[in-house]
Write a protein that binds this DNA or RNA. Sequence first.
DNA 1: GTCTATAACTAGATAGAC
DNA 2: GTCTATCTAGTTATAGAC
Lengths: 201, 201
Amino acid sequence: MSERQEVTRARLLRATLEALGRHGVARTTSREIATAAGVNLQAITYHFGSKDALVAQALVDAVRKWIEPARTALTGIAGDPLGGLFATVAALRAALDEAHEHVPAYLEALATAARDEAVRAPIVAMLAELREALAASIRELRDAGLIASWVEPEPMAALIVAAGDGFVLHTTLDPDAHSPGATLDQVTRLLLAASMRDEPE
Amino acid sequence: MSERQEVTRARLLRATLEALGRHGVARTTSREIATAAGVNLQAITYHFGSKDALVAQALVDAVRKWIEPARTALTGIAGDPLGGLFATVAALRAALDEAHEHVPAYLEALATAARDEAVRAPIVAMLAELREALAASIRELRDAGLIASWVEPEPMAALIVAAGDGFVLHTTLDPDAHSPGATLDQVTRLLLAASMRDEPE
DNA sequence: GTCTATAACTAGATAGAC
DNA sequence: GTCTATCTAGTTATAGAC
């Protein structure tokens, strides 16, 4: 594939993502995408087969931009549980701060995924990867004796990912919904509680 | 407003909600809504002013169906913290089980809310009500000495609502993402940890 | 109040020149 | 490979009969 083709494809994807974030799948037209990308209308059909295929790929890309930084941050924990933990938390916070601008497109992606298998499958796979990376980190922390033995890596990872997702969605829709500092404090308390050796029965 | 009018409006709203859940805002047309509702195409304009206005109202209704049962369940706690707690948990579980069928429309609503103030405002208000109801319950439980004093009602309520929301969204997209029993067990453990009197410092 | 018929418009896809 | 010009089909909104 020629370099010029790659450039055109990238411009189209980028323009699509921006348009989706601005006014959603429903009101994003081929003409607007092509104009914003600075390419011809026909280029969409030529490079992606159809407008729907271009939109589907752009939506999956939107989710990737959202999930990838978080997953990358988690790998910092591997091999150095305690030291990596702080770096990971810092990286996650940075990823979250940046996440809000992608949320509208992310929501479009989720809404489309609920209906369209071609969009759903790759998104579900990415979410699964994120959960697994987090579960591995939790397991390592637990084996190092840093958190309570009753913590089960997989379910706890799923719970944390879901909570983080919901938190960002709600915060984006309503900035007043959460006080970041107060929420962080409560999460920290919960983590401390989970790090106690006591086995509640 | 006549009874006949009410019936037509209700049928239109119901048909719109179903169509939105099936194939999203983007591919829901006035013709399909009118046909499914068994009314005339023109009725949309007559009763709601425009297709967009009808869709907006249907989306807000979708969120209401989602949030209302959860909020109602929480009121059971008032005045009888311990006894109400079990009833509330049972009611919440029932509400969650039923929630999955509404998720596609709920996601459409969130995606639209991210862009459209007329949809966003009522949704944000409903979410805020839900958080407040939960915060009141938490406060009551805390004052009754059933949970640790370090639990702050508002931030903890916001956290729980966000987590529950994310949990249902992820579970709907990928039924294998969470093992309900295992997740519930971890939540229970966390709650038990939060109910300890120990003040972690 | 509800219908039929249609107007006015915009969409995505395509044909064919270059 | 990329453009211009155009086609066909679909959309919402409206006019006017009943």
